[in-house]
Nucleic acid binder design. Structure first.
Lengths: 333, 333
DNA sequence: CAATCAACTGAGAGCGCTAACAATCGCCCT
DNA sequence: AGGGCGATTGTTAGCGCTCTCAGTTGATTG
């Protein structure tokens, strides 16, 4: 049987409360007592029971991180940073996968109240306002990304502006037939909508007429689906001068297709992505992309979350993280 | 204030125990009672307090997954599968990162006893037998990978045999100057040692003399370090006929270096990796690799863990997962 | 019809911890 | 010398849940 505070207290010749004080360090304990207690803790190999502490305190020290799919590089990098920053601050992180299922996204927000969790960082894909019933007591939540959602704090990158700037950059050396890969039909993700709008804004600025046939739909933003979508597209369409993929993952799938067709990049077609995942740097050729500081996203998200946990009442806040267009070989003129 | 079992019980006109029975579903409850209780749960928007349940039961329903670095594709894919399989079985997963720090790996095994965790799946890099003091009460642990460790259950892929087979495959079209990238100095990871030995075994089979200068060291198995190591190597060594990288990540870094030098793959040099990460499939050219079923690793690890949680006493078990050499464009003769 | 049995329900305790409050100690001040 | 103060430490209680064990109900049997 494992040692409890009582055992430690008995061995150290103090009361359980004193042991608790030593561990939590808020109420002062004299040096001698502290030493005795610490000695006893070591001798008994005592480890506090976090369930009991959580029950008593109403807080568990655990936050949940919900992402669409840990297997994708983007989610993985975000998870990495959040876990790291959270650990630095003494939080334990629980992982959930939503599989981009709005049902599951919603469920997580609601279920998260089961006390094992003090807060939730959620990267929703399709969660919309309606999904969150007002009146339901939500735990402190921070959303990640481009969600039209005013019920929770949020950290995001301005997809609209970034997509616009990337399109402008691709057009720089006189390219005019710029295609985008990753548009979605119907109720798409907020990111898809905003990136498409940013692209169209750029066309307007450039005085290029909108060409429906340059929008290449791709529902799932993964290499394979992107490769398939692009292959099908090239069967029946002429080659564009540039291809702006809405994520680096899709760009990597696209590069592989273009390369197999013997096309030269960027001479025959320039390619760009979005997210600046590590793989893009080592892609062949290295991938032009929209870059942003994922560590900053993580620490901002955690800051918002801890502040909200401390003060449930204050106003919703939205933080935007800067981005930069990083030109690499895949688009260098 | 959140509703408790008591509130639900009062509203449903039953005792708290009955509510508990309805939720846990082991002790039978009549249909009518069940309906009443479920109704009350819905009305009160009741969510059980997992801390309290954990305290009472001594089990939390949470397992921890500790990986070196979530940001690397390999870890991310493993994490994805484990989280998915665990969720299917009703487990919650907590993530820890070790940063390949043996100190931290050891700490996790010991600290994991803090009751919020029922078990631990650990992917150690350098943990050795000595790191685990016998006599310390460990939680149920399953190790992932090539660890010379007899104190816990383990799931692994036979790195030695896989490296041997890959080397043989690379040598098939008459290649004899086969380099490996990823050897380590001194106390390296178990995987590094076994893969190197497998490679040397293959050379012996092939009757190729061991050539120290074909072992390219690379401590950290990441694209950047691999790229740097290979770049430095090529400054002072002739180009080998084939390059067997000990992970796909390193291979991707290597491909990028080779491509920048204008080398043709596989004509000038064949390249292979290990792990079959998703990116390898879309690398340019697609990457020959050692493939294995990561989902199987996940479910085997979880099976071992749950079985050990049920029966702390039984013998240590070691499960090996099959591998296959997958030849893609990067080595196709 | 009573005895027996199974199926279900209820009362009470306590898991390990810490907040609130009470008690004690040493020491300084008047 | 006595009172009082701040600094420490002890006592009590209860967080929400589910286990034990006893009690109740309704159905089945002799």
């Amino acid at each position: 049987m494992r040692a409890t505070v009582k055992d430690v207290a008995r061995r150290a010749g103090v009361s359980p409360k004193t042991v608790s004080n030593v561990m939590n360090g808020i109420i002062p304990v004299s040096g001698a007592t502290r030493t005795k207690v610490e000695q006893a803790i070591l001798e008994l190999d005592y480890v506090p029971n976090l369930s009991a502490r959580g029950l008593r305190n109403g807080r568990s020290g655990v936050i949940a991180l919900a992402l669409p799919d840990l297997g994708t590089p983007y989610s993985a990098e975000i998870a990495h940073h959040i876990v790291e920053v959270a650990h630095e601050q003494g939080w334990i992180v629980q992982i959930e996968e939503t599989g981009s299922d709005p049902q599951r996204e919603h469920e997580l927000m609601v279920r998260a109240r089961s006390n094992l969790i003090d807060g939730l960082i959620l990267n929703p894909v399709v969660l919309d306002e309606s999904a969150v019933q007002v009146g339901v007591a939500l735990p402190p939540v921070v959303l990640l990304g481009e969600v039209p959602q005013k019920l929770a704090d949020r950290v995001f990158v301005d997809s609209f502006a970034a997509a616009r700037d990337m399109t402008l950059a691709l057009a720089q050396p006189g390219r005019r037939r710029i295609a985008v890969l990753g548009t979605t039909q119907g109720r798409g993700s907020a990111a898809a909508i905003q990136r498409t709008q940013g692209y169209e804004e750029a066309l307007e600025i450039l005085g290029i007429e909108r060409d429906e046939s340059l929008l290449i739909p791709c529902e799932k933003w993964m290499p394979q689906t992107a490769a398939d979508a692009l292959t099908a597209y090239l069967e029946s369409h002429p080659l564009p001068e540039a291809l702006f993929c809405f994520t680096d993952s899709m760009a990597i799938g696209a590069l592989s297709v273009l390369w197999k067709r013997g096309l030269r990049i960027p001479e025959d077609i320039a390619v760009a992505g979005f997210d600046d995942i590590a793989d893009g740097r080592y892609a062949v050729p290295s991938l032009t992309t929209v870059s942003f500081d994922k560590r900053a996203i993580a620490s901002e998200a955690l800051r918002l979350l801890t502040e909200r946990m401390a003060d449930r009442g204050h106003e919703q806040r939205v933080v935007s993280v800067d981005y930069a267009i990083v030109e690499r070989d895949s688009s260098r003129a």
